[in-house]
Amino acid sequence: MTADATTALPDGFAAIVEDFNAVPEPERLQMLLDFSRSLPALPERYADHPELLEPVPECQSPIFVIAEVEGSGDDAQVRLFFSAPEEAPTTRGFAGILHEGLDGLSAADVLTVPADVSEQLGLSRAVSPLRLRGMAGMLGRIQRQVREKSAG
């Protein structure tokens, strides 16, 4: 991984990409599983009202996401929440990466993350292209929600 490849990423997300690329491929899958276990539970306001979360149909497993935006404009702070089943560790892992890499950042930083960030993790031989597209689908929905909510 070159510095140029992670330049467009916020620092924390760039560090995650660098960590994945610093280990051999078999260990990357283990890292993905570690992220699946670190995905925070939904707060009650969403656990009790799952209809407020947006589904991500690109994912093979049922996953739902919502981005909260505090403030307005590019400096607005983004908070992310995911619902993914325990029995879907790959999907939960991607959600965990997005949560750790993006939660708490400014809207401007979230919107700079390139759509191909899932490919930068070096998992293309360990995870199917369909699953990588699922992570891209999650990111796309997050970015659309952030654009809509930070504009108003």
Results as ranks from 00 to 15, higher is better:
Ala22Asp: 03
Thr7Gln: 15
Asp48Lys: 06
Ile63Ser: 00
Phe20His: 00
Ala47Phe: 12
Glu25Asp: 00
Val23Tyr: 03
Leu29Asp: 01
Pro26Cys: 02
Leu52Val: 12
Pro50Thr: 12
Phe64Cys: 02
Asp34Thr: 10
Pro43Ser: 09
Val65Cys: 04
Val17Glu: 00
Glu25Pro: 00
Thr7Ala: 14
Leu52Tyr: 10
Glu18Thr: 10
Asp11Ile: 14
Pro62Gly: 07
Ala22Val: 06
Glu25Cys: 01
Ser36Gly: 08
Pro43Met: 11
Ala15Trp: 07
Cys59Ser: 10
Leu29Arg: 01
Leu39Lys: 07
Ala67Trp: 04
Pro43Gly: 07
Ala3Asp: 15
Glu25Gln: 01
Pro62Arg: 14
Leu42Phe: 06
Asp34Gln: 09
Val17Ile: 10
Met31Glu: 05
Tyr46His: 07
Asp11Ala: 15
Leu52Asp: 07
Ile16Met: 06
Val65Tyr: 01
Asp34Gly: 08
Ser38Glu: 10
Ala5Cys: 15
Leu32Met: 03
Ala47Leu: 13
Ala47Asn: 08
Asp11Cys: 13
Thr7Gly: 13
Leu52Glu: 09
Pro10Gly: 12
Leu32Asn: 00
Phe13Gly: 02
Gln60Leu: 14
Ala8Val: 11
Arg37His: 09
Ala22Arg: 10
Gln30Val: 13
Leu33Arg: 11
Ile66Arg: 13
Val65Thr: 04
Val65Asn: 03
Glu58Phe: 08
Asp34Ile: 12
Pro50Tyr: 10
Ala5His: 15
Ala41Ile: 13
Ala14Thr: 03
Leu42Gln: 03
Pro40Val: 12
Pro40Arg: 13
Gln30Asn: 05
Pro40His: 07
Leu53Cys: 08
Thr6Glu: 12
Glu51Phe: 07
Val65Ala: 02
Ala15Gln: 09
Asn21Glu: 08
Glu27Gln: 07
Glu27Phe: 04
Val56Trp: 01
Pro40Gln: 07
Ala41Pro: 11
Leu53Tyr: 05
Val23Cys: 02
His49Thr: 11
Gly12Phe: 13
Val17Pro: 01
Pro50Ile: 13
Pro43His: 07
Val65Trp: 02
Cys59Asn: 05
Ala41Arg: 11
Glu44Leu: 08
Phe35Ser: 02
Asn21Phe: 12
His49Arg: 11
Ile66Cys: 10
Ala8Asp: 05
Asp19Glu: 00
Tyr46Arg: 10
Phe64His: 03
Asp48Asn: 13
Phe35Cys: 02
